[in-house]
Amino acid sequence: MQSLSGQDRAPATDSAPLLEVDGVTLQYRTSDRIVMATYRVGFSINQGDRFVLLGPSGCGKSTLLKAVGGYLSPDEGEMRLRGEVISKPGPDRVMVFQEFDQLLPWKTVKGNVVFALESARRCRGAEAADRAMHYIEKVNLGNFADVYPHELSGGMKQRVAIARGMAMEPDIILMDEPFAALDALTRRTMQEELMRLWDDTRFTVLFVTHSIPEAIIIGSRILLLSPHPGRVKTELESQGTDVAIDGSGELLSERIHSELFNEGARS
């Protein structure tokens, strides 16, 4: 339970943003220079949002996600999860990566999920095993629970990673282009499956992609970022399909495209 700091905020907790990113500037160091990844980026995510960070490479979207994950600390501004400033990685924000090697190769599918639960001291023993199986079945891998990751296809590995993240029942799931390394057909299936899972459990997700169609399918809210350094361009809403917005006849994908690439062309 959250502390209410003595005030009667109870009705407001639902509408208060789950994650607030407030004027965040991020820099990272390479061997010979310091690069500014984002400049004073701000947004806030509510419970149950499917929030997509969309932008071309170099807009700092992955860096921003890693900062929310607690792996980087902002040089300016701050990030708050349920009002608490994010300072280090933690199991309340689970990352799902693009790379297949995010699964521990020495653990079975079930072992990977149980590992996460036990490492984070969520639960252990039979309880952890039951909870792991519950989520493994949710991603349709019930028959593969005792298989090692190297025997799985790329899409199945990503499903295990998603099941592992969901089993933690975190405040927010952070997805860093999780389907980018998959072939086009698998990618499409995975997007549908993620949406089905969301309909089922309504988790909050922060999703990074550079694909406009993917952003439209996955996102309920899409934040567009411009590159070098990453700044907020605008925020759009998506209904899950590429439809005309504002009755203007302009498709959502066209709008995103013109926002991202035709700077200043719009009046």
């Binding site: 792996y71 990352m95 990566f97 521990l104 996460a116 490492s119």
Partner: peptide, 28 residues
């Protein structure tokens, strides 16, 4: 791999637990 390291830290592993549960098996 950096990914595996981040996974370990994500689930709250630090110090000795991190070495035993992530580094040793990954480097086995």
């Amino acid at each position: 791999s950096p990914t595996l390291r981040m996974v370990g830290r994500n689930y709250g592993l630090t110090g000795f637990r991190y070495i035993v549960k992530i580094l040793i098996p990954a480097a086995f």
